[in-house]
Simulated assay, not measured.
Amino acid sequence: MTLSTPLLAAAPLLAGLIGPALLGAAPDRQQADPPDHRAMRHEIVEHVAARTTAEQRHVLDYWTPERMAGALPIDLLDSVKGGAGLLSGLTGRTGVRAAPDVSSRRLTPPDDGVTTGVSGGGLATWLWGRTPRHQAAAARQDRESAPKRPETNTVGSRWITGGAVARTTGRVFLTVRGADFVCSASTVRSANRDVVVTAGHCVKDGAGGWAANWTFVPGYGMGGAQRFGLYAARRMFVAGPWSRSGDDNYDVGMVALATSGGRHVADVVGTQEIAFNPARGGQVFGFGYPADPPYDGHHLVYCAGRLKADPYGQSRDQGLGCEMTAGSSGGPWMTTFDLATGKGTITSVSSFKYSDDQRTMYGPYFGDAAKALFDTAEHA
């Protein structure tokens, strides 16, 4: 199957600005079951990120307001070039997946995009600028897609009701191969009160490297982007099939966070429930921080509707009618969601779209492999 890049968002590469090496990096440790085929799917690959207080402070200091504000969609990074040519594998191979009969490898950028060359450190990147038309479109979308009450069927609306989901969902800031990106994630109820769930490609570049400077900002935009603090990653976990080959059926990441101001993230913003091996189909609410127009990454957006199977049979993932764009990757999908309290049960996360159907988002099924990840992360 032909695949493309993740639904993340990236900041421009500036002259001489290459992200620091992974802090506190340690050799990946695989907790392997007996070598039968089923057990191989339940391998857990762990990465130690920022272990000490000094390392965690270094990560948080990296994210200046300017770096956070500069995030741009990652689906433009096939244009990043180096001395050896195209670095199309910069961010992993998941995200906008080409359908079996579609040759395009990515979403087409807006027709009115403005290309701007930025060079530095031997790299040149062509990024689509946000034109006044884009800004106007974002403002119009904010007005038109913010209903007075939550809807149970929407392909992308501002979440303005508040409740627990507005605090537990947050933006993730990370660095991969010197480029800065954004994703989405959610806190989950865990024994150590530190776990967030996101997409695997928001943690590790498939068979490539791990993300650096990984930071979670819960409740982003609620009375200030950092109202509830910033939380650096201390340990990261992905499934073996994702780490070995970027298998989209296992595009799930669990991250154990460091405390912020001495407090666990769960004690500050609360958590959502998480469940595994749920019945397929049914109603779901998906949340995230899309950053590509008509969205701007500063508002929590949601999609709601019934799940359907992958029509191409290319994955075991399920699809949700959803027009959220780059930056929404890793955002939680919740069943049994209470519109009044904003609490639900997470059973998937936003992962990829087919290039010929940009109105449907797909998310991995949370089976035994996802449960093994969670069980390990909550005791990390």
Rank of each mutant, 00 (worst) to 15 (best):
P132C: 09
L76Y: 07
A370Y: 03
G178S: 09
G262T: 12
W333L: 04
Y220C: 07
D142W: 14
T169F: 07
F181W: 09
P100F: 11
A340L: 13
M222K: 11
A21N: 11
A49N: 14
T154F: 07
L60M: 09
T345D: 02
G95V: 05
T169C: 10
G286M: 06
V238K: 02
D296I: 09
T271Y: 13
E151P: 03
L307V: 02
T259A: 15
F366L: 02
P332F: 05
D251K: 00
G117P: 04
V265K: 12
L13P: 05
H47M: 06
A39D: 12
F337V: 08
V188E: 05
L17D: 15
P290A: 08
R244V: 09
D338W: 07
E66T: 15
V172K: 00
Q283F: 09
L87Q: 14
D28N: 12
V269M: 09
T325V: 04
V172P: 01
G224A: 09
D111W: 07
L3S: 08
A211V: 11
R177C: 02
K353D: 01
L257N: 11
V96P: 00
S315V: 01
G92P: 05
F374M: 02
P35I: 10
A84L: 09
A32M: 13
L86R: 12
G19R: 02
L127N: 10
S329P: 00
A32D: 15
C303F: 10
D310R: 02
D28V: 07
D112W: 11
S104Q: 12
V155W: 03
L339V: 04
T259Y: 05
T53E: 15
L174I: 00
V255N: 02
T161Y: 07
H264C: 14
V118L: 12
D267N: 15
A11M: 13
A211M: 11
R280C: 11
G89M: 14
V48C: 15
I160S: 12
A99G: 09
G297V: 13
L300N: 08
R130D: 12
G331L: 00
L72A: 14
C202D: 00
G261C: 14
P294C: 02
V349H: 00
E66K: 15
R235F: 00
T64S: 09
A50W: 07
T271I: 12
A239H: 01
G170T: 04
G70D: 15
A11H: 10
S260M: 14
V48M: 15
S184I: 08
H42I: 02
F276H: 01
A124I: 13
G19V: 04
W128T: 11
E323P: 01
T2C: 05
G122Q: 03
A191C: 00
A179T: 08
L13Q: 14
A185H: 06
V252N: 06
